[in-house]
Amino acid sequence: MSSSVPAIEVDRLTKVYAAKGRTTCAVDGISFALEAGTVTGLLGGNGAGKTTTIAMILGLVEPSSGQARVMGARMPRERYRVLHRMNFESPYVDMPNRLTVRQNLTVFGRLYAVENLRDRIDTIARDLELSDLLDRPTGKLSAGQKTRVALAKALINQPDVLLLDEPTASLDPDTADWVRGHLERYRKERNATMLLASHNMAEVERLCERVIIMKRGKIEDDAPPAVLLARYGRDNLEDVFLDVARGRGEAAREAAQ
């Protein structure tokens, strides 16, 4: 990837769903660019358009207008140029439950043409503390263990671009903290670019150097966490999020000035 090409670039991206004569604008002309090696949080309430934005970046959903590019490749049209260098994790997408962890990782490792796959699975299992679970059916694992398996699948190809949709949803604080730590280490080791949709403000504050706040399909704000805190005169991102979600963002910004 040339250093001048953003890892992810979204330009006037719009998605309008039409059903039964009604149209819903899920994403409304948003633009942003993420440099390689950065971690960016995508915040917003339910229905803000975060998941649709991520799905368009992944090539799972076709934009109505505008474009999403990953490492220069236009999605979904040119997706096969880059899909082997990216990956995705979400608690809303499962892996086959009857397959063992090792079988699932083997299948995905082969799909991504991972070299020395056996060694890679052993390494990633060690990193994510899955070694004792490798031969157990994925469906028999606890929620926390399943999340670690999903993360192992997302990292099996050592992606340059990683998209995460609420990676710690439904995890206990200890496991969630452990997952965040692993993501931080991975980013440092691989200089990977991450885009993280989350409702967990503490997670976003810890992991992200930039935060994009969405509301009703539009970008409401876009800045580093510290800048957002100063801009809204708040001590934490949760209060910033509530200001934006409850329509008092502008008032908070004026009051802070």
Partner: peptide
């Protein structure tokens, strides 16, 4: 990993084999 060709019609026996393996594991 090699640069991938950008066509929906390109066939990789390796990836087909991976999917067959997935269903054989299931059976």
């Amino acid at each position: 990993m090699n640069e991938q060709s950008n066509t929906a019609l390109a066939l990789s026996p390796h990836r087909i084999g991976a999917m067959v393996l997935r269903y054989l594991y299931l059976l």
